[in-house]
Amino acid sequence: MSTLEKHVDVGVPIDKAWDSLHHVENYSRFVDGVRDAHTDAKGRAHLSIEAGDHTREVDAEYADGPDNRVLEWHTRGTPELMGSFSLLPLDKNHTRVQARLEYDPDTVRDTFGGPRGFAQANAVERVVRNDLEHFKKYVEQGR
């Protein structure tokens, strides 16, 4: 398994960042490739993800950590992915959003395509970094 951790500081209070992250239905607005997402009351999510010229359906389970500051998730089935979003208040109006992703590079490549080895690690890092920047714009624009 490979692990990637990235963060972004956003100019909103922790509660606003939490509310925005917690609404999986809005992920298509800031996560590249997510075309549709919905949740049920039992902590499960279904995402339709477009990667290259393929669309994949991915099911995941998620759970809230203590104090509405950690959202943990893992996929059900292939690809096996797990991760979390952790929120840290920097001050009254600023929050650090930490994303952690654990993945098997071969499974990700087989499922979504793309390069192997070091190039793949760079591609995954770029995607996560871009998604965090998109989240920053999304949440700071008050959506």
Rank of each mutant, 00 (worst) to 15 (best):
P105K: 04
L88T: 15
E80G: 09
R116S: 13
R109C: 03
D106I: 05
L90W: 01
D106P: 06
T75Q: 05
P115S: 10
L90T: 02
T111N: 04
F112P: 00
P89K: 11
G83R: 03
E72P: 10
V70W: 14
D110H: 05
S84T: 03
L88V: 15
L71V: 12
L81D: 09
R109N: 04
T75K: 05
F85G: 09
L101Q: 11
R76A: 12
R109L: 04
Q98G: 14
F118G: 04
R116Q: 12
R116Y: 08
Y103N: 01
A119L: 08
F85P: 08
V108F: 04
D106S: 11
D91R: 00
P105E: 13
L88M: 15
D106L: 09
Q98K: 13
E102G: 07
Q120L: 04
R76W: 07
D110A: 06
D106H: 09
P105N: 07
R76T: 14
G77M: 01
W73K: 14
V108R: 01
L101G: 06
P79C: 02
A99G: 11
E80N: 13
Q120E: 02
G114Y: 06
R109K: 11
L101W: 08
H94E: 14
N93K: 09
D91Q: 01
T78Y: 07
F112Q: 01
L71K: 11
R116A: 12
Q120P: 01
D106V: 06
Q120I: 00
T107M: 09
V108E: 02
F85V: 14
W73F: 15
H94L: 12
D104F: 03
P115C: 08
T111M: 01
L88A: 14
E80Y: 10
V97Q: 12
N93L: 05
F118W: 08
T75F: 08
R109Y: 05
G77R: 01
L81A: 12
L101E: 07
T111P: 00
T111E: 04
F85T: 09
G114K: 02
A99E: 07
R100V: 07
R100I: 07
S84E: 08
P115N: 09
S86H: 10
R96F: 06
G114C: 04
H74R: 14
F112K: 03
G113K: 04
P105G: 05
V70M: 15
N93A: 09
D106F: 03
E80A: 11
V108K: 00
V97G: 13
G77A: 00
D110W: 02
H74T: 10
S84H: 06
L90S: 01
L81N: 13
D110I: 00
G117R: 12
L88G: 11
P79S: 03
W73D: 12
T75C: 08
L87N: 11
R96M: 03
T107N: 09
H74N: 11
G113I: 00
K92C: 06
T95Q: 08
R76I: 15
Q98M: 15
W73L: 09
L90A: 02
E102F: 03
G117V: 07
L71W: 13
Y103F: 08
V97I: 11
P89Q: 12
M82T: 15
D104S: 10
D91E: 00
Q98S: 14
S84F: 05
T78K: 13
G83E: 04
E72L: 14
G113W: 03
A99L: 13
G77I: 00
F112Y: 07
